[in-house]
Design a binder for these strands. Structure first.
Lengths: 329, 329
DNA sequence: ACGTTCTATGTAACCGGTTACATGAGCCAG
DNA sequence: CTGGCTCATGTAACCGGTTACATAGAACGT
């Protein structure tokens, strides 16, 4: 037995498909009698409308495509959660496609969205804007997240790394710290790049001494960075890691070496992962879920009035015990 | 300018839509000349096939619907990652729908999938099988994850909590531990329930002393549980927490009180979150991504040969420093 | 009584693909 | 030269909804 269609319902209710369609979509001009016969037929047949067919005839899918690169746990789940929250609020579904491979593979993934979704949220840090605009189906509204797009060709949302970094450096300067160390993230990561550049700029602006050491966003690289600095006998009174993981590694290594935090050395991270809160690390809170939420919001709103331009998503400094001895927990 | 359709391409290439369709789908019986004219027209018009229309006429979507409850970070991202990995391998997309609210809301979410996807992966711990089968569109292949379904009405995959717990208790017994404490998870959580029940059964089987204290999967509840036990002056030589978070809380609290781990008290968690590995906590590794991968696999394979029945996904004991003093880190 | 308006319903075209079947050209054997 | 075969191509129906337009019957005013 194949699935019941609207024509089956119409036949059973002894009405036309038009009337059935109108009844199911809550139009006014349907008699009470017809309505009853239709509801009866629907339940008897177990009829469920075919969303695909509906989309085709309405040219509207009530779905948003989400194209993400392979990204690590928390960021992924948080950004999707944010999108989902806003999507379900507005009655949209999310069509997910992870971009493992690059090149033609990526282009295909984007094309496969045509005719299934009303808009696209794309996060493709390793794709250039020219490649993107070549691969994106024409006329499919798209918004970019954390993707470099100087051209302003697409609406975009970025994390405002510079603002976050400035807040950190200003905070450290206000505490009287003079010699700052930045443990950078992986060099191919765009956020890591921006944080490093912003660090150097902010340090210069505050006329402090700044130094950058390499890291890779993993906890171990934070430990390694500190061990290296101590072996060198480097002097510093503050460490600003490009993410919380490395800040935790740095904290443990310093404490293990008998350095007092924050008295001798202040430590700041980035991201505000749950563990940072638990340990009490001063950090920059990135509301990732909000980023996703906002992207979906702008996209769906933009389906009506096309708003271009970039938007910066400001993070927020959270002061805890690794810079402020009075902070609790 | 509206989107180009296959008819536009046909007109431009001076051929019929049938020929264009055949050429685009790689049929043999298309002349070289036609093929060239079509490729030219396609690039000139920037034509991208309309996946929705294609699905309608093929009655095939190349998409799988994923319906999940609100679940916390790691579990969500891992399970989706696993599904996505397998999906993109097989050329499927994932249509995501989070089940925030229950009742009619949930039923609608399931219905909205009809005609968009070829199958459904459902994780709905708070929905009964009867509600589910009422809400699920008839004829849409579905597989259940971690959902109680005594009826065997749907194919299902469960995490084998009992096996994991038995491995833990056997391990502790082999180490000579006699008095075990289980810090349970939230009582409405099905995995937490199963772990608690299995703990009591395993302890009885090994003729050990077992006690259960309440927890809620958060780190703080692990700390609280231990504090309470110590206040009471309870005696125990092993703590088995229903997840790693609580195990970490327990570990910190015990160490802070000067109790030696593992010499005085052994500690075991569940899940194997990254932090557990870093700290060196003995735990039960749940390959969540594999669970998702397997669900998608079975679903897609089952689209051909309908295989019902339950499947248990076995976890694996990972022995680390909180039970074995010789284990490194 | 009649024309007008209103309302519920029906008919059929359309969304953008796929494909069964029809057609006509080219080729070869007899 | 003709019948039969192969093969590229075209025509039109179909997937399952929506909806512009047509229509019939009821209600209403004069």
């Amino acid at each position: 037995m194949a699935e019941a269609t609207i024509r089956d319902v119409a036949r059973r209710a002894q009405l036309s498909v038009a009337t059935v369609s109108r009844a199911l979509n809550g139009f006014e001009n349907v008699s009470e009698l017809a309505r009853e016969r239709i509801t009866a037929a629907v339940t008897e047949l177990g009829y469920v409308p075919h969303a695909g067919a509906r989309s085709l005839s309405l040219s509207r899918n009530n779905a948003i495509g989400v194209v993400l690169p392979d990204l690590h746990g928390e960021f992924f789940s948080e950004i999707v959660r944010g999108m989902d929250r806003e999507a379900s609020r507005r009655g949209y579904l999310l069509l997910l496609s992870n971009l493992h491979a690059g090149g033609a593979q990526a282009a295909n993934a984007l094309r496969a969205m045509r005719g299934r979704v009303d808009g696209l949220i794309v996060m493709a840090p390793h794709l250039g804007v020219d490649e993107l605009s070549a691969a994106l189906p024409r006329g499919l509204p798209s918004i970019l997240i954390n993707t470099r797009d100087g051209s302003g060709q697409f609406p975009a949302i970025h994390l405002d790394n510079a603002a976050g970094v400035r807040a950190v450096v200003d905070h450290l300067a206000a505490l009287g710290r003079k010699r700052l160390v930045h443990i950078a993230g992986p060099s191919e990561n765009i956020d890591a790049q921006e944080r490093e550049v912003a660090f150097l700029a902010a340090v210069a602006a505050q006329r402090l001494h700044g130094r950058v050491v390499a890291g890779d966003f993993e906890m171990e690289s934070g430990e390694a960075a500190i061990r290296q600095l101590m072996t060198e006998g480097a002097r510093f009174d503050a460490v600003f890691a490009a993410n919380d993981n490395m800040a935790i590694g740095a904290l443990e290594t310093l404490r293990a070496a008998g350095v007092r935090v924050p008295e001798d050395v202040a430590i700041v991270g980035f991201d505000d992962i749950p563990l940072a809160r638990h340990i009490g690390i001063t950090t920059v809170r990135v509301r990732i879920a909000e980023l996703g939420e906002r992207a979906l919001q702008r996209l769906v709103d933009g389906l009506i009035e096309d708003g271009g331009g970039d938007e910066l998503h400001a993070p927020e400094l959270v002061i805890r015990a690794t810079t402020d001895p009075k902070a609790n927990g």
